[in-house]
Design a protein around this nucleic acid. Structure first.
Length: 343
DNA sequence: GCTATTTGACCGAG
DNA sequence: CTCGGTCAAATAGC
């Protein structure tokens, strides 16, 4: 489990300090947007503070574990895209390949932390590797989009050191499969390949491409193309300076995984016929963010709507717990405070 | 037999 | 040299 029982209080204090650091950075960004944009000394100090706290937390947790700092990977840490844990003696490989590259796509990774796992996000993922990470208690699993060869979308899934009940998911690269004429990977039910794979994929769900938007908010919509990252400006931050909620009808944050306690109450979201580019619908009254649809790039939406001075290639951590979620019809709301930048 | 997963080996970046 | 990311043969499950 997460460290020793006697260390949980200290861990909480460190986590609280991290949050405070993030909030301080956020406030400074609002007061001094230019300084923040330029990666000034203050931001560097804050980043160092956050990093130091993270290291302290990791160190604490390592000390909390028994003599061997590297705990064996529990069954739930051996993640598969189908939510299975397969005991496998493994095989030996004699590789003859050449020309491997190690790259992080466009560098625009996004990390999402979910309490109940992501095994049923709306894309088909194929696991292609697992690796023990130095300093991490749990192995990291590597997934790539399993819908279409050549789709660069990948994700990395790892149990959180701080809280093993959470998964840390880093999305790398955007799906290109839904840009092609063939059936979208976001609508796998129409694809024969997916029909085949779905035989063994009970957790696979359709993308909630179309989500009912409250009529009271339709008139307040302000459309921002998610693909235009440069659209995010400090003035936009001010415009939405004090939202109460971030609405995330996200496939990866969807339904049963997030609300295991109330699964029966979770409605099945219906996909939309068309998959237009991700569209932001932002309330001008500053009270809510509303998104009509989200692809696997949903983290991009979170990034664009986050209250801090996030820049291109910044990572975003979204901590979602059951307590953060409030269901309303077929939507769920995530508390705004749960969206924090990751340093 | 087919497909997905496991896991050791390999590769490149730092 | 270390370590993270990826490949691909071996294996398990259907």
């Amino acid at each position: 489990m997460a460290g020793g029982g006697g260390t949980t209080a200290a861990e909480k204090l460190i986590v609280d300090a991290q949050k405070s650091t993030n909030q301080l950075k956020d406030q400074l960004a609002k007061l001094l947007p230019r300084a923040a944009e330029g990666g000034g000394a203050v931001e560097a100090i804050l980043s160092h503070m956050s990093e130091s706290l993270s290291q302290a937390l990791a160190s604490l947790q390592r000390c909390a574990s028994t003599g061997d700092q590297r705990l064996p990977v529990p069954p739930e840490a051996s993640l598969s895209s189908h939510g299975q844990s397969v005991v496998n003696s493994g095989g030996r490989s004699v590789s003859t390949r050449s020309g491997q590259r190690r790259s992080r796509a466009d560098g625009s990774s996004r990390r999402i932390i979910l309490q109940h796992g992501d095994r049923a996000d709306s894309y088909l993922w194929r696991k292609y590797g697992q690796k023990d990470i130095l300093g991490a208690r749990f192995a990291r699993s590597y997934f790539k989009c399993g819908h279409r060869a050549g789709c660069p979308a990948r994700k990395q899934v790892q149990l959180s050191d701080a809280d093993p009940s959470r998964l840390e998911i880093t999305y790398i690269g955007a799906h290109t499969c839904h840009d092609l004429p063939s059936p979208s990977c976001a609508t796998p039910a129409t694809n024969s390949i997916d029909n085949d794979t779905r035989r063994n994929t009970t957790s696979h769900r359709r993308l909630p491409a179309a989500v009912a938007v409250p009529s009271t908010l339709q008139t307040l919509e302000d459309h921002v193309l998610a693909s235009d990252m440069t659209a995010w400006t400090p003035s936009m931050e001010q415009e939405i300076a004090s939202p109460s909620w971030l609405f995330i009808p996200s496939p990866a944050c969807s339904q049963s995984e997030l609300l295991s306690v109330a699964e029966a109450e979770v409605p099945e979201l219906q996909p939309d016929a068309s998959l237009a580019p991700v569209e932001h619908k932002k309330a001008r009254d500053g009270e809510r963010f509303v998104y009509s649809q989200l692809h696997s790039d949903f983290a991009t939406d979170i990034w664009t709507s986050a209250p801090s001075n996030l820049r291109i290639n910044d990572k975003v951590t979204v901590e979602v717990t059951a307590d953060d979620l409030i269901w309303r019809d077929d939507e769920f709301l995530v508390s705004y405070d749960s969206v924090v930048p990751e340093f």
